[in-house]
Design a protein around this nucleic acid. Structure first.
Lengths: 151, 151
DNA sequence: TATAAAGTTGTAATCATTACAAAGTTGTTA
DNA sequence: TAACAACTTTGTAATGATTACAACTTTATA
């Protein structure tokens, strides 16, 4: 999961290979996504990049991410928070959301393709798996609290 | 999948058994969901029910569905359309969205629980599987169109 | 350099959802 | 039955992410 940091040039090539013409903004957005795997939202990306590019518009981030998404360069992660989060690693994996701390964790998926019934003749192009629950840390805090409240 | 139509009284019992106090609105919303499996949004439910209950407020639909959802009576389906859709049958199944006609189809899932890595110590309480692609009908139309356009 | 195509910007609009306070309803206890 | 608390419903206003759009800028190509 730990990848070598890519140069802007390498990112440009990467975009071109997927049919996206590189631009300064596109390269910077992709660079951000590759180096920050915490599933950022549009605003987080915008606030980070505007420090380097003072004329940046938020619309450009929206445009860029929509382009990336349509070319399969990023995943749109819909966790139900009411906004779309982005994942720069579009290889198949699931997303776990902790309902306590809201943290999102990447999870590798074992079953190649869940066997599904009732889709004869259907073409499946995309598959998303979302998990919800409580992460180890929040689980620990919870049980600690329980003990304490027992007095 | 085809279920016997429930009386308001039966729906009331069903709500109570899940810890939700029945009310006219709650019973009507649940009745609508049980009898209309096309994954309606808030507005669709509202427009249908207001015909019978002229003083109905849309906020009540939101409140009701949020209550249902928190008690596990309905599923919130997030397909990426920008709004939440609702499914009155919360048994585990996947949702397939046709990217052409936007239709949503229930899909039974075979793999009991996709084996996941990296979640040791995590408690999983919810699992959603979304599929995207092209349904049979749209697939047929597409290939027909292709032939026609060949001339 | 001229020209077209594509990318970027900023503002305004949209639209689902939430917040909130007032009004109504229900159930319980005296 | 009356009083009361708890819960439900309503309607309006606010929020906040996303989109629409038109003007402006940059890039690529001849």
């Amino acid at each position: 999961m730990v990848d070598k940091i890519k140069t802007p040039k390498e990112i440009g090539e990467m975009l071109r290979s997927k049919g996206v013409k590189p631009s300064v903004i596109r390269i910077q957005v992709m660079k951000y996504l590759l180096e920050h795997r915490a599933h950022p939202n549009v605003d987080t990306i915008y606030k980070f990049l505007i420090k380097e590019m003072p004329t940046l518009s938020k619309t450009s981030i929206y445009n860029t991410l929509k382009t990336f998404s349509s070319k399969g360069l990023v995943l749109e992660v819909m966790t139900g928070s009411g906004e779309i989060l982005f994942d720069g690693y579009p290889e198949r994996h699931a997303h776990f959301t902790c309902t306590e701390c809201k943290k999102i964790v990447d999870v590798s998926l074992d079953c190649e393709i869940c066997k599904t019934h009732g889709l004869e003749g259907y073409t499946i192009t995309e598959q998303s798996v979302y998990l919800k629950g409580i992460c180890t840390e929040c689980g620990k805090v919870k049980s600690t609290k329980k003990v304490i409240s027992k007095k």
